[in-house]
Write a protein that binds this DNA or RNA. Structure first.
Lengths: 228, 228
DNA sequence: TCATTATTGTCATAATTATTACAGTTTTTC
DNA sequence: GAAAAACTGTAATAATTATGACAATAATGA
């Protein structure tokens, strides 16, 4: 974790973040004046926020990639979100009653991250409507995202989870490229990797899907849906 | 589902809802003028919102109790939230990009529910700061709540889930009264009831907890924590 | 109050998943 | 390009959980 930037030469960078991008041009100077922030650089593997720690700061990733994970106190992690620059982080629980972070945020590459204190976010929201609305929609989307994740994890069998996952990833098409390893998928499902692979192979055996490395072809979409 | 109230005699009722309770007295008349809403009565078992349906309305339960559930397309449900009057419903995804409801809302008793269209909520938020802040904190709390739920469901074994659940419900004390049936707990965990009961009895056998109906006494808190 | 319904504990069996281990393959990294 | 690391498929065995069914008890309603 390197020291703060001496000064951020290109402060306009913040307007690339979706949270701020809709702020009208004629308000941007005012916005920058009202904004209190610091910028830090992180290396791959650095931890920005620790699960359970008090976090009263809005973070905006302006370079690099950060993943948020939830540990199950056994060393194992479940990835919750994968955030690429330029996007905000920790919007979800910033204003929650219990402001301890439910997740850990870990840099997946070299990162530069802006930190804005909660009180300042309050102020900005009151003063800049576009910011407020974007913030609101960000949190709302998070609720939606978590709900979907919850549904996935709640499916009882690996077969159901995998079917759900594949249908979702296929976006209605018949061929999909897995973007992550089977190990990661297993982690998302909270199941073991061998069990996941076994089920995937069984489904291929049955002719429901075709598996070629990370390319998966959906043969019988109806059957896939019936597994849910 | 009975017809709308002809007119809501006691419109002040809405200020009992936490979303609106902090609106200053001197703004309340204006607030009621700006507010667009309708009130409906429901019977026990009535469905207010169906999972997957478009829902661009903020609901406030002013009498009765509503539970939100997520079905796994197999007839089985997982309860997400239990809302008692006077509290809002569906705050979470109202402003999400995909405004289809991820849950179904089902009345658990006779209910009276206020409906406010999304656009009107927008307007109220811009105009009444206290309302905006409360709304924000409501969504944030929902994110927190869902995160916690996700952690629970992600724990792999029933033993871990039960330990987590009991530790949480005990609030640090040693005796706790279960507020819901074992069947409901099993549903929350997404596991079968017999399996849950079996694990609970095993833990009692081992002297980690003591079970007397719905009263549970935590004997060995450390051991409970080690199961996570 | 009595009847009805919901809840609870238990069981045997079947199904699913975890664990551990290994070897072959692909991808990264230097 | 070679070495290291990560990824993949597979298998045997153990552990966990689901299923369906049953009787006993508690709670509820008319």
């Amino acid at each position: 974790m390197k020291p703060d930037y001496p000064y951020l030469e290109n402060r306009q960078m913040i307007f690339q973040c979706p949270l701020c991008s809709s702020i009208p041009d004629n308000q941007r100077d005012d916005f920058l004046n009202d904004l209190q922030f610091s910028v830090r650089e992180y290396d791959k593997g650095d931890i920005v926020v620790t699960q359970g720690s008090l976090s009263e700061t809005l973070y905006i990733v302006i370079r690099g990639e950060v993943s948020t994970e939830m540990s199950d106190e056994k060393g194992d992690f479940m990835e919750i979100e994968y955030i690429k620059a330029p996007n905000p982080m920790s919007t979800g629980f910033l204003f929650a009653a219990d402001s301890r972070s439910p997740v850990s945020a870990i840099c997946q590459s070299k990162c530069a991250i802006i930190a804005i204190p909660k009180d300042n976010v309050y102020l900005l929201m009151r003063k800049y409507e576009a910011f407020m609305l974007k913030f609101l929609s960000y949190i709302s989307n998070k609720v939606f995202y978590l709900s979907e994740k919850l549904r996935l994890v709640s499916l009882r069998s690996i077969r159901a989870k995998l079917s759900y996952f594949l249908l979702k990833e296929s976006f209605g098409g018949n061929v999909l490229q897995l973007k992550i390893s089977r190990e990661d998928i297993a982690r998302i499902f909270s199941v073991s990797r061998p069990a996941l692979v076994k089920v995937m192979m069984e489904m291929a055996e049955e002719g429901v899907i075709e598996v070629n490395g990370r390319e998966i072809r959906i043969i019988d979409r109806n059957k896939l849906q019936s597994f849910l």
